[in-house]
């Protein structure tokens, strides 16, 4: 890992449009290692698009994206694969499968045969159980994710990021549809991943929570990012 790079994420003058609809018009952003940044903005302002560009899922029309020391447009995507965790609004969990299965999924790229056969080693399972324990989910490993509450599902997604050993966590509105207390506990837990060396970039809709827990808060408006006070 290129820890020597100055920033975990560096965006320079990013432009992006869907057809004739210009979404991002010169976005600049620098996020350091172990830093937590929140991005706010109205619906359709391009927050999810921005996260997807950082995750390497979308290519900007202009500007450069440097993630974990690698330029994504210049073939750097392969170098950062597996080191980024992306939690979309729908969480990206596989329903019909257990919480443990969903966490173990993070190790599938490195151990494809074990994943396909379902014959995980004891160390894999222990690691996944430990990740679930770290997010406060004891004894729910065997439960199907669709039987868990909204807050518990979010925790499973975070446990997967921990188990994955991700260096950068991208979360898209992680606390939507949660009650206030659960939402605050979850944001606190997510931001505390900084202590494990993770950089966190999260789209947020709750301004108070964003200002309380994140190192910096940005507002995406008119296609550009502005730091919120």
């Amino acid at each position: 890992m290129s820890r020597s790079a100055d920033y975990a994420v560096e965006l320079k003058d990013i432009f992006f449009s869907y057809g004739s609809n210009s979404i991002l018009r010169g976005v600049n952003l620098e996020v350091g290692y172990g830093e937590a940044v929140a991005i706010m903005g109205r619906s359709g302002s391009g927050k999810t698009t921005l996260l997807k560009i950082i995750a390497g899922l979308l290519r900007p029309e202009k500007g450069y994206v440097k993630v974990l020391g690698h330029y994504l447009q210049a073939g750097g995507l392969n170098s950062v694969k597996g080191r980024i965790a992306y939690i979309p609004q729908t969480l990206g969990l596989i329903e019909g499968e257990s919480a443990l299965y969903n966490v173990l999924l993070a190790r599938a790229p490195r151990k494809p045969l074990r994943f396909i056969t379902g014959l995980w080693g004891g160390d894999d399972v222990e690691g996944a159980v430990e990740a679930l324990r770290l997010v406060g989910l004891n004894g729910v490993g065997r439960r199907r994710v669709e039987t868990l509450s909204g807050g518990e599902k979010q925790r499973v997604a975070i446990a997967r990021a921990i188990f994955q050993g991700a260096v950068l966590l991208l979360a898209d509105e992680p606390i939507s549809n949660l009650d206030l207390d659960t939402a605050e506990a979850l944001v606190n837990m997510m931001v505390s991943l900084k202590l494990r060396g993770l950089s966190v970039i999260s789209v947020m809709h709750d301004r108070q929570l964003a200002l309380k827990y994140f190192d910096r808060v940005y507002v995406l408006d008119g296609g550009v990012l502005r730091e919120a006070g």
């Binding site: 997807k52 899922l57 979309p88 990206g92 596989i94 299965y101 999924l105 790229p109 494809p112 994955q164």
Partner: peptide, 26 residues
């Protein structure tokens, strides 16, 4: 979104297909 999050983890090819199969198991 499920596909995207699995791609970002680094899943591709047959393991990615098997993960998506699990989702469509029923």
């Amino acid at each position: 979104e499920l596909y995207d999050s699995l791609k970002v983890i680094g899943l591709e090819g047959l393991p990615l297909a098997f993960a998506l199969y699990s989702h469509a198991k029923k």
